[in-house]
Design a protein around this nucleic acid. Structure first.
Length: 1038
RNA sequence: GCCCGGGUGGUGGAAUGGUAGACACGAGGGACUUAAAAUCCCUUGGUCCGCAAGGGCCGUGCGGGUUCAAGUCCCGCCCCGGGCACCA
């Protein structure tokens, strides 16, 4: 032990160790960076000091950083998950350093299908598995060192939380959208209107605006005479949460209804089960009432263009006209929506969706059979079939005709499945001359095609140009399309057969799920009429059930519960969808323990909107739309004072990963063939017959597979399958590791170019059959190759390409993981995970650490007061209080400037680079000066909080580095006296010349031209032009 | 088909219209070591000329254009990724 205590004088400072334990002398000479101990100690300290606890403190400016909370699945976190969390954590920590009171909470979206599916399989209560999964998530999150205030944790499945989800539901149920004020209002105000004026004529128009409401008209007297059931039936047309007959995506396999965005390619997003369209009573959310405001609000948000665009497309606003076609010989009207009323003179038929309500009523007897058959067929065709079969044109004539509003001509009415029941009115006026689908339909069925625009060649295709001139007969002839549209609508309104109409693609959101693991809907039924549960009855807790399955009569699981009623009246048995809790959770974090309100007005008023919201772009049209919708609703009703939930949204890119693939015999096994042998037609192995047990899976290595690319018969028998990446090294599968991972594949054979291995014993063999004698060879060293071509795909457990953060943290520490994930590239880009580069960030942290623990040689040079070569005898750092040099200050302030600016831009990869540059340069300068290192520790703390905490302590501080003020950069340290100008000729750099910054451009030009080398390049000719850009470049044009 | 991203070394990536390839990985060479690990130093876009010092040419998906100057701006394409889609 060397010179203990001698550092107490002289310039080198020493700080008392927190830790009385004396490390080994050998380790002291060069204190290594021991991440495990450092990180544990830092976490212990944070917990002890409670540094991440945040109070609602109105004296400080607030900043709200929110992550999209995770669904706690059984698989735990992989390295893709924390990417966004790390980024938001850096911002949260940075803002804290800058003096903001930062709300940075985390919680769990803990209702959901997988827990329920697991419960069905195992009988374990979803609450239990959810609990276990949450504990695992928490442990992993803690290991990464996030600065979440866990006292504010929320769980959507916690009754104390879902009480308020139910409460908001009741408010939605008790509200309607008042078009006159363009906001939601209590349903009582609507009832008052009805009592006073009824619902007819002008009053009706005022209340509904452009909205199409199916409710009948009635007078005030009629309203008063309605019984309760009749009144409620009418109110259901207005309530924001309502029950009505609706076309829903019914998934028989899941026994539930899915929202449009939960259906992908005609199958359920979770599970991939087929989905069919079905009409049934259904709880819905009237999000369509907010369509225009959801659209307008986008302009005020600092969200990525792609997300905003996705929402715009999803809302799908289109302007056009509603046109009514009277049915000939009946009193029905067929209403169609069109964006092109200018093409009305080109209408040659009208097409109804197979599900359209009028199909039955207008079909003539002669066509009844064929229409019924077609409708039946079209309805039974799954979405998937329709999708797979885009080219097919199908339809049938109803026998009915409608009257053209302008010409009075009779136009046939067809049914076609290219018309969707859920969009517009479920009927189209077909203009084959102006719409390609109509053209296809007309051509297929030999219906007339009329040219509507000048220059159209309707024999080949429809003309959909929107800048054309109308050529069809009638008053629109000669007008440009936009003018013709206006004129046509004017004419329709004059005739009373149509009007201007704005249509949205957005549909109301299905809100009921035939499921157990979700929030119960707080509604009971009296005589079949839905009534809201009184607020005092909330939360309506999930009841116990014997099984998590539907009942035998297909009722949802809640119907199994005993006493599932309120004062003898049955309670609703469907539960809320996954997006209910996540639509408002950001408010609960503001005041998570409030028992009397979803959050106090003071808390809401203080925290306001989320300042930064970070999450995946896959929520573009689902969560992020409902999130905005509920916020606007709560705003309308006065519970919050802002109508957008998040000012800024950043989408982290997905982490992709390299997958490893081998090939599997598609038809199960070769053992099932009669010969029980495998013939492997290799030039080396000709032929090899291997006797094997029955029913084994056969894998072949990728090089074997690739060698037979020419043999399509061989080729087609195999299909690529992923294998866990950690079972693969340098493209070679370790079969024994693979077997421990996948014991289910024990009865498999792995065939490679020079032999084979049985999964059951892992012994490599080669067996020849020559002249009917089987020859056994010495065990070969086998290289079972995976596909050499790299496969990059989304990181997910099902693709066996996940990397677990726990392993990385164990090996390198959380700080390295955090830094590396940020260093990988721009946050918003998707990028491949590849641990190859992680060494670089780990080395950086070691170098940074070593600046404070200079090895003996460096320390002795920096030291001018103590014995050369001495080292600390304790855990303190070796920093000097010497004044920094100009060069050192320049490095420091350049770094502070770059990092500060980059965090504001969320450009974390470039800040990490800057830190690396700084540490490399300070290392070269052997700088161990406090004045330089201390600000760097603070600046690095948001990125790598653990090491920063440890060094901060070594610098003698007893508080947490988390609370240190952000070091501002000072421009005076960055001023340069001179600049090395690149001298270019015609834009090509040829040489460098250094000039003082202060020198004016004229003088620089003269100096450059006087330079001998420049003279030589000019060869005596005068330059055409010389451009001098101060502090940038000199360009000589010759 | 439509909408949104994106194409830069062997790899991840950097670059207010102003020296393309910062930083890092990998690779090659060297130092230290009995050796390894760790660490440090040098080289590293391609190509050509030169013994060397050094120098030339090409180069940011492709083709044009604007500009003294283009990875960056404009026009026309190609390719990759993601999203949406019989949307009237």
């Amino acid at each position: 032990m060397l010179a203990k205590g001698s550092g107490g004088h002289g310039r080198r400072q020493r700080y008392p160790p927190r830790n009385a334990r004396l490390p080994l002398a050998s380790a002291l000479i060069h204190m290594p960076y021991e991440h495990q101990q450092i990180e544990q100690e830092a976490r212990r300290k944070w917990k002890e000091l409670g540094v991440y606890r945040v109070a609602n403190d109105p004296s400080k400016p607030k900043y709200y950083v929110l992550d999209m909370f995770p669904y706690p699945s059984g698989a735990g976190l992989h390295v893709g998950h924390p990417l966004g969390y790390i980024a938001s954590d850096i911002v949260a920590r940075y803002k804290r350093h800058c003096g903001f009171n930062v709300l940075h909470p985390m919680g769990y979206d803990s209702f959901g299908l997988p827990a329920e599916q697991y419960a069905i399989q195992t009988g374990q209560h979803p609450a239990r598995t959810t609990e276990v999964n949450i504990a695992r998530y928490r442990e992993q999150l803690d290991n990464i060192g996030f600065s979440f205030d866990w006292d504010r944790e929320v769980r959507t499945s916690d009754p104390a939380f879902y009480k308020w989800t139910q409460w908001i539901f009741l408010q939605l149920f008790g509200s309607w959208y008042d078009r006159r004020a363009d906001k939601a209002a209590p349903i009582a105000t609507l009832i008052a209107c009805f009592e006073q004026n009824g619902f007819c004529d002008e009053g009706r128009r005022a209340l509904t605006g452009d909205e199409e409401i199916e409710a009948p008209s009635f007078t005030a007297e009629e309203w008063k005479a309605f019984n309760e059931r009749e009144k409620e039936a009418i109110l259901q047309h207005f309530r924001l949460a309502y029950r009505s007959e609706a076309w829903v995506n019914w998934c028989p396999a899941l026994g539930t209804v899915l929202a449009n965005d939960e259906v992908k390619d005609g199958v359920s997003e979770r599970g991939g089960h087929p989905v069919e369209r079905k009409r049934m009573p259904q709880w819905s959310m009237r999000i369509t009432a907010y369509a225009q405001r959801l659209l307008n609000g986008l302009d005020t948000l600092d969200w990525s263009d792609s997300i905003k665009e996705a929402q715009r497309n999803w809302i799908g606003r289109s302007e056009g006209a509603l046109v009514r076609f009277p049915v000939v010989g009946g009193d029905e009207l067929i209403e169609v929506f069109t964006t092109r009323p200018d093409t009305l003179f080109g209408v040659t038929f009208v097409t109804l969706a197979p599900e359209h309500a009028l199909v039955d009523r207008i079909t003539t007897d002669a066509h009844r059979a064929s229409v019924a058959a077609y409708v039946e067929e079209a309805k039974n065709r799954s979405e998937r079939e329709r999708q797979a079969d885009v080219k097919r044109v199908s339809g049938v004539f109803t026998g009915a005709y409608v009257k053209h509003p302008f010409t009075g001509e009779e136009v046939p009415v067809w049914v076609g499945d290219y018309v969707l029941a859920g969009y517009g009115t479920g009927a189209v006026m077909a203009v084959p001359g102006g719409d390609q689908r109509d053209w296809n339909f007309a051509t297929h069925f030999g219906l007339p095609v009329i040219a509507v625009t000048e220059g159209a060649d309707i024999s080949k295709e429809a003309d959909e140009r929107k800048d054309a001139t109308i050529c069809s007969e009638g008053f629109l002839q000669g007008l440009k399309v936009p003018d013709a549209i206006k004129r046509a609508i004017d004419e329709l309104e004059k005739l009373g057969t149509g009007e201007r109409r704005i249509n949205f693609r957005l549909r109301d959101a299905a809100f009921g799920r035939q499921r157990y693991w979700g929030e119960p809907i707080p509604i009971y039924y009296k005589d079949g009429i839905p009534y809201p549960l009184p607020e005092s009855e909330l939360p309506l807790k999930l009841p116990e059930v014997d099984k998590f399955l539907p009942t035998v009569d297909g009722e949802p699981p809640l119907a199994r519960a005993a006493n599932w009623n309120y004062q003898g009246h049955p309670l609703e048995t469907t539960t809320m969808p996954g997006w209910a809790g996540s639509s408002w959770y950001f408010l609960r974090y503001m005041d998570p323990h409030n028992a009397g309100r979803f959050a106090s007005p003071e808390a809401i008023n203080y925290w306001q909107q989320v300042d930064l919201y970070v999450g995946g772009s896959e929520h573009a049209t689902g969560h992020l739309l409902y999130f905005r919708f509920w916020t606007k609703f709560l705003f309308d009703r006065g519970w919050i004072n802002f109508d957008e939930p998040a000012k800024k949204l950043v989408n982290q890119g997905m982490i992709t990963a390299y997958s490893e693939r081998i090939y599997l015999h598609k038809f199960g096994s070769f053992g099932s063939t009669s010969s029980n042998t495998f013939t492997y037609p290799d030039e080396v192995w000709t032929p090899v017959n291997v006797a094997l047990p029955h029913s084994v899976q056969e894998f072949v290595s990728a090089d074997v597979y690739e060698r037979f690319q020419g043999d399509s018969e061989y080729f087609s028998r195999y299909t690529p399958v992923n294998v866990p990446i950690h079972c693969v090294k340098n493209g070679i599968l370790d079969i024994n590791t693979f077997m421990t991972e996948r014991p289910d594949l024990m009865a498999s054979v792995f065939i490679c170019h020079n032999g084979f291995v049985l999964g059951s014993d892992g012994i490599p063999r080669r067996e020849y059959r020559q002249n009917d004698l089987i020859e056994y060879k010495e065990p070969a060293t086998l290289a079972f190759r995976t596909l050499s071509e790299p496969i990059v795909e989304k990181m997910s457990k099902s693709r066996y390409n996940v990397t677990n953060p726990d392993d990385i943290i164990a090996k390198y520490g959380a700080d390295t993981l955090r830094l590396y994930e940020m260093f990988l590239g721009p946050l918003e880009q998707s990028k491949p995970w590849d641990t190859n580069g992680i060494e670089g960030t780990f080395r950086f942290l070691k170098k940074f650490w070593n600046l404070f623990h200079a090895p003996a040689e460096a320390a002795s040079k920096a030291d001018d007061g103590a014995t050369p070569g001495q080292a600390r005898s304790d855990n303190a750092a070796l920093v000097s209080d010497e004044a920094p040099t100009k060069a050192e200050l320049k490095i420091l302030h350049a770094t502070l400037k770059k990092v500060t600016e980059d965090i504001e831009k969320m450009s974390f990869n470039t800040s990490v680079s800057q830190f690396m540059i700084a540490v490399n340069e300070l290392g070269t300068l052997k700088c161990n000066k406090r004045a330089v290192l201390e600000p760097l520790v603070i600046a690095l703390a948001p990125f790598t909080p653990h090491i920063a905490e440890a060094l901060w302590e070594k610098l003698g501080h007893h508080t947490s580095v988390t609370l240190a003020p952000w070091p501002p950069w000072q421009a005076e340290h960055l001023v340069e006296d001179s600049f090395s100008y690149p001298i270019s000729f015609n834009g090509k750099t040829r040489l460098q010349l250094e000039f003082p910054i202060a020198l004016d451009p004229k003088a620089i030009e003269a100096a450059v031209l006087a330079n001998p080398e420049v003279q030589a390049r000019l060869e005596g000719k005068a330059p055409k032009k010389v451009i001098v850009v101060p502090k940038r470049i000199v360009n000589i044009v010759v």
